Measured scan of single mutants.
Amino acid sequence: MAAAAAAGAGPEMVRGQVFDVGPRYTNLSYIGEGAYGMVCSAYDNVNKVRVAIKKISPFEHQTYCQRTLREIKILLRFRHENIIGINDIIRAPTIEQMKDVYIVQDLMETDLYKLLKTQHLSNDHICYFLYQILRGLKYIHSANVLHRDLKPSNLLLNTTCDLKICDFGLARVADPDHDHTGFLTEYVATRWYRAPEIMLNSKGYTKSIDIWSVGCILAEMLSNRPIFPGKHYLDQLNHILGILGSPSQEDLNCIINLKARNYLLSLPHKNKVPWNRLFPNADSKALDLLDKMLTFNPHKRIEVEQALAHPYLEQYYDPSDEPIAEAPFKFDMELDDLPKEKLKELIFEETARFQPGYRS
């Protein structure tokens, strides 16, 4: 834990890192770190609560700039109880001085990944967590956004079992017609939660990839272990087919990539493993919904509104309290091709509203 900075004593240090967030945020305490930044909790002297502050230093890398800009653009436009918001952003007053960006968010005690390492969940908890994931996802999908990296560590939890989806750095506007060349190379989302079509096709992607990830998360809540822990690309596919069985001819016809289709045709026939054999203690309604989410063919996979209306979630289902976005989200430009200098300018502009004396 960093010592509390005395008023006016300059930035606090946390594990050798400068955290320049005073005077409003003090009493910093280390939480963890990701690929390009550290997260601390801090005391907000204005709202009198502890908050989470993520320090991001992305400006050396085009990919990190892209992810940072995506996350900020999306989260500043989203407003939903099951999606983490941005409360404040701290950065230098000029673009030349801006080396880091500090993002202030609600402090959540833990995440689903940490929880599943230590606790076996009751059916009631599984049901409530799944409902909140789908409630947040309904809003995301209504904005025409794909999260693309749903996994237990991106689901934040607090002691009252509130759940918030975080990390929109890989999110995209849904565009089933656009052929994202190089899709697989830039697709760094965790393999275990990846839909089979991501490994088999490169053309376009749809909201059904997020539903697949939610199915993987439900299976993990039922058993405290990942359902498809593939060691590499082909191993991942083999794990999936080992449980779902061989795809039907109709399902194979959806695979545009001939090499991928021929690979699947070359494999020995596998039978589907019954879900109640894998999860003998699970609620039968939970397994019915799991089956509809972990469907090989993305066109037959359940959609988020149908999933919310499934009998497993009937005690929570309330369409009048499951809000959607006001308007579909649009990125003005494809960020993939922009140089990091341009992305830095866009991050600077996007964060201006939090600067003292800002006038829109």
Rank of each mutant, 00 (worst) to 15 (best):
A3I: 00
A6C: 08
A7W: 02
G8E: 11
G10Q: 11
P11A: 13
E12P: 00
E12F: 12
V18E: 10
D20P: 04
V21P: 00
P23G: 03
R24H: 13
R24E: 08
Y25I: 08
Y25L: 00
N27T: 06
Y30G: 01
Y30E: 02
G32R: 08
E33D: 13
Y36C: 15
G37D: 15
V39S: 13
C40Q: 14
C40K: 12
S41V: 08
A42I: 01
Y43E: 10
Y43P: 11
N45E: 13
V46C: 13
N47C: 12
K48I: 12
V49E: 15
V49P: 13
R50M: 15
R50A: 12
V51I: 14
A52E: 02
I53P: 04
I53T: 00
I53Y: 04
K55C: 14
S57M: 14
F59V: 14
E60V: 14
E60S: 09
Q62K: 15
Q62P: 15
Y64G: 15
Y64M: 15
C65V: 13
T68N: 15
R70I: 01
R70E: 09
R70C: 13
I72V: 03
K73R: 02
K73C: 07
I74S: 11
I74P: 11
L76H: 02
R77V: 01
F78H: 02
E81Y: 01
N82H: 08
N82W: 07
I84E: 02
I86F: 14
R91Q: 05
T94M: 14
I95N: 15
Y102S: 04
I103A: 03
M108D: 09
E109P: 02
T110V: 07
K117C: 13
N123D: 03
D124R: 00
I126D: 02
C127G: 09
Y128W: 07
I133N: 15
R135H: 08
Y139V: 10
N144C: 09
H147D: 07
R148G: 09
D149M: 02
L150Q: 14
L156I: 03
L156T: 01
N158W: 13
N158I: 15
T159Q: 06
T159E: 09
C161T: 01
K164A: 05
I165E: 06
I165G: 09
C166F: 12
D167Q: 08
L170V: 00
L170Q: 13
A174I: 01
A174S: 14
A174F: 06
D175R: 10
D177A: 14
D179C: 10
G182H: 13
F183N: 11
Y193M: 04
Y193C: 04
Y193Q: 06
R194S: 15
P196A: 05
E197R: 12
I198M: 11
L200G: 02
L200Y: 07
N201P: 05
S202W: 11
G204H: 07
Y205N: 14
I211D: 02
I211V: 09
C216G: 10
M221T: 06
M221W: 03
L222G: 10
I227F: 15
I227K: 04
G230K: 01
G230E: 00
K231W: 00
L234F: 06
N238D: 00
L241Y: 09
L241V: 10
I243V: 08
L244S: 10
S248R: 04
Q249G: 03
E250G: 09
I255M: 07
N257I: 15
L258R: 07
L267N: 01
L267R: 00
L267T: 02
P274L: 09
P274K: 01
W275S: 07
N276Y: 13
R277V: 10
P280L: 10
D283Y: 15
S284Y: 03
S284W: 09
L287V: 04
D288V: 13
L289N: 09
L290P: 12
L290C: 10
L294N: 05
N297M: 03
E303Q: 00
V304Q: 06
E305Y: 05
P311L: 10
P311F: 01
L313C: 02
L313H: 05
Q315V: 02
Y316D: 09
Y317G: 07
S320E: 10
D321P: 00
P323H: 14
E326D: 15
P328F: 07
F331Q: 03
D336C: 01
D337Q: 06
P339H: 11
P339Q: 15
E341F: 05
K342W: 00
L343F: 09
E345R: 06
T351E: 12
F354D: 14
Q355L: 15
P356R: 11
R359K: 13
R359L: 11
S360W: 03
